[in-house]
């Protein structure tokens, strides 16, 4: 049989086998990823989406450090129940300054994409330091150490912003210059709250949201 004879060549020549595996396994990725990387609608910010301020950026990096996305998603699906529970469904343009994306894959706790503005700063502070003070049944860990450390303890906010600048985020040099001053007297918990309060607030609902739950 022809196919088997062809395959005999592959399994008797390790270089051909390596090439064959590489070729066959790369097709799917090329078809799905390459067009997405060049699709402008995925990298165009929505009208009000802006880069994170120094405090929000530090807060986001704390969110990553504590692996909050293991239990909290940041992605509201276009389903009626979900839009009712969390707000307008998520748009690609809201995430263009998110490196990495933090959509998560599990909701042990609720989705946080539109948590910004839903609770007061004081509520967040109490909740982060001991969640059971405000939500008795909560199984979220307490994060008391966030109130012990300065937000810019590593003194690396400028390095972080410059790295993002190199990736094309529109930070101007003056903003990077001023960043350490903006973080002075700020604790990690304040930075994290600044991040949580900005989440999902860039999107302004318009008339089309009346149909937001359709897909």
């Amino acid at each position: 049989m022809n196919g088997l004879q062809l395959h005999k060549k592959l399994e008797e020549n390790s270089a051909l086998l390596i090439f064959g595996i590489l070729f066959v396994s790369s097709i799917g990725g090329l078809v799905q990823i390459l067009p997405s990387l060049f699709q402008e609608s995925l990298s165009t910010p929505t009208a009000n989406t802006r880069v994170y301020s120094p405090a929000e950026l530090i807060g986001r990096d704390i969110y990553i450090r504590e692996a909050c996305s293991v239990c909290h998603s940041q992605q509201i699906r276009p389903l009626l129940a979900e839009v009712e529970r969390y707000g307008p469904y998520s748009r690609a343009g809201e995430f263009v300054y998110d490196r990495p994306f933090l959509w998560g894959s599990k909701r042990t706790g609720p989705d946080l994409h539109r948590v910004g503005g839903k609770y007061s700063d004081i509520w967040h502070r109490v909740h982060l330091l001991n969640p059971r003070d405000v939500v008795p049944n909560s199984i979220m860990p307490a994060y008391p150490w966030l109130a012990d450390r300065a937000a810019n303890a590593g003194d690396d906010i400028q390095a972080r912003m410059r790295a993002l600048q190199r990736l094309g985020h529109p930070y101007d040099d003056a903003a990077i210059e001023a960043a350490p001053a903006a973080l002075a007297n700020m604790l990690e918990v304040d930075a994290l709250i600044a991040y949580l309060q900005v989440l999902g607030t860039a999107y302004v609902p318009d008339d089309s949201d009346e149909h937001g739950a359709e897909h």
Partner: peptide, 13 residues
């Protein structure tokens, strides 16, 4: 500390 070369939806894919 590093930041992904890809952002948002593209990073997700």
């Amino acid at each position: 500390k590093s930041y992904s070369l890809y952002a948002g939806s593209q990073d997700a894919i």
